[in-house]
Amino acid sequence: MTLTLAILIASLAVYSWKFFGYLVPQRLLGKPMVARIASLLTVALLSALLATQAMTSQSEIVFDGRLVAVAVAALLLKLRAPFLVVVVAAAAVAALLQAVGF
C-alpha cells in the first residue's frame, strides 16, 4: 500500500463517521453506552498514541528526554498555556536534553 492510497482511505474512513451521523436515526446512536464508549475510545487512543510517542523507539521501550518534555507539557497545560506554546516548549526541552546527551 502506498502512503497516498492510505491517506485517501483513511480520509474517507473518517468522513464516513461525519456523514453517518447525519443519516442514522438518533435512537440508534443516542444510547448512553454507545456514547460513553465513543468518548472513552478517544481518550484511550490519544493516551496510547501519547505513550508510544514518548516512551518507545521502533519496537523498544525507551526512557529518555521525551518523558521530561511531556512532563513540562503537562505542567504548561495545567497552567493553561496555549496549545502551540505547549508543543514548542516540549520540542525545545527534548532538543536541549538530546543536545546534552540525555
Binding site: A6, I9, W17, K18, F19, G21, A38, L41
Partner: peptide, 17 residues
C-alpha cells in the same frame, strides 16, 4: 494508521448527531 485515524474519527459522528 488508517484504523487509528478511523477510530479517533468516531466522535465526529456523534457531533453530527
Amino acid at each position: 494508521a488508517i484504523a487509528s485515524a478511523w477510530l479517533l474519527g468516531i466522535r465526529n459522528g456523534f457531533y453530527a448527531l
